[in-house]
Computed example of a mutant assay.
Amino acid sequence: MKKGIKMKFYNRKRTLLLVVFVLFLFFFFYPVTLVDEEDNNIRIFSTGLTKVIFYEDIGYSFIEKTIFFYAAIPFEKFALLNVQNGFLPRQKGDSLVQRQSDDSTAMVYFKSKNTLYNYDNFFYNEKWLKDWIVDSKDFLKNISEIDEPMYILYMDQGRSFQVLPSIYVVNSVKDLIHELSHYFFGYRVKTSSNDTWHEILAETNSLLFLREVLPKDYLTELELKKTGFYDEPYGQSVISFMERLDFDKEKIFDLERYILNNFDKLDDKSFANLVEIFFKQ
């Protein structure tokens, strides 16, 4: 009798230890994560091994890092953080302007968020950016309206980029057209990391914009693309696409509106088929 009771107790204890061990492994490799802000640091607290990609404005670089339990990332004005594994992190901070909703987006911190200028649903950090925003918004109406809050930031950095859906760091009005195009093609219509069609459309839109407002810059960009100055798909691939549709702005916008209204996700092969269909019309 006593032996049977001891055996049951031992089995329960072993089962409990096994459950605890499994839970430990789970939360170690798929951690619960808390991200907050203190002074000039983003602090990451985790139950285990956390893989992150972050960008901070001290080193002006994207860094991929594995964090064990805790790390602090210093920044001055602007930082973004993408937590790649585990449960979606809890996110806090006075400077937080965008939360990470899945592993394809990122949380963004901007120290001066309470002093941003505002035009319609656009928020921006330099007063003169309003002209760029007005021109870009009017041009992109040819595709569709942008109704969500958008943050346009001039950071005087070496490159422009977007953190979908709402954050756009830009150096020129051409770049603003390109990056905002990814709100449609990259966010509203999803793509994979191996596809390039969305980059071709974004770069095409920036060229069409230059053709309307800065024709000399447009001709310069055409020449640079033809001579291989840009890596693909930003060079000859863009020219080939525009040639296929006769450099016709209305044909290109018709194709873009069709994609936006009929697809949630698109790949390069399907895009090429669509181009052929519109070419034959």
Rank of each mutant, 00 (worst) to 15 (best):
F139G: 04
E37F: 02
F185M: 05
L214V: 05
E250P: 01
I44W: 01
V213I: 14
F9L: 15
A71E: 15
L214D: 04
R43D: 00
Y117F: 15
L23K: 03
D103R: 14
F271Q: 07
L222R: 07
K265W: 02
V275Q: 07
S104W: 06
G48A: 09
K249A: 05
L176I: 09
N121S: 14
F184M: 05
N82E: 11
N82D: 09
K249C: 01
N85A: 09
L17I: 15
Y124V: 09
I44M: 02
T227Q: 06
L255S: 07
R14M: 14
S104M: 12
S193Y: 10
I5D: 03
I277K: 15
L210R: 02
E64L: 07
K141L: 14
K174A: 14
E38P: 00
V32E: 10
Q91M: 14
R211L: 13
E56V: 01
Y258Q: 06
L176C: 02
A202R: 07
V32T: 12
N273A: 14
R99G: 04
Y187D: 12
D246Q: 11
F110D: 05
A106E: 08
F62Q: 05
F110H: 03
Y168V: 03
Q91K: 07
M150A: 08
S270R: 14
N205G: 01
A106V: 02
N85S: 05
E199A: 08
F122E: 02
F253W: 01
S206D: 05
T15P: 00
R14T: 11
L25A: 13
N82I: 09
E199H: 09
K137T: 13
D39G: 02
Y151P: 01
F28H: 08
K216I: 14
V169I: 15
L17V: 11
K51N: 14
G235W: 06
A71L: 12
D217N: 15
Q100A: 13
Y117K: 13
I177N: 00
Q84M: 13
D156L: 11
F263S: 04
F68L: 15
L214Y: 13
Q162V: 08
V52M: 07
P31C: 05
S46F: 10
T227R: 08
L23S: 10
R12Q: 08
V22R: 09
I177A: 04
N273P: 00
L88I: 12
L129T: 05
L245C: 12
T196H: 03
N262D: 02
G186F: 03
I143Q: 03
P149V: 03
V275G: 06
L245G: 08
F161H: 07
L207Q: 13
E276H: 04
V189M: 10
I133V: 04
H178S: 09
F54Q: 04
P89K: 03
P233A: 13
F78M: 08
N273V: 05
P31S: 02
V213F: 15
G186R: 06
D217L: 14
D195R: 09
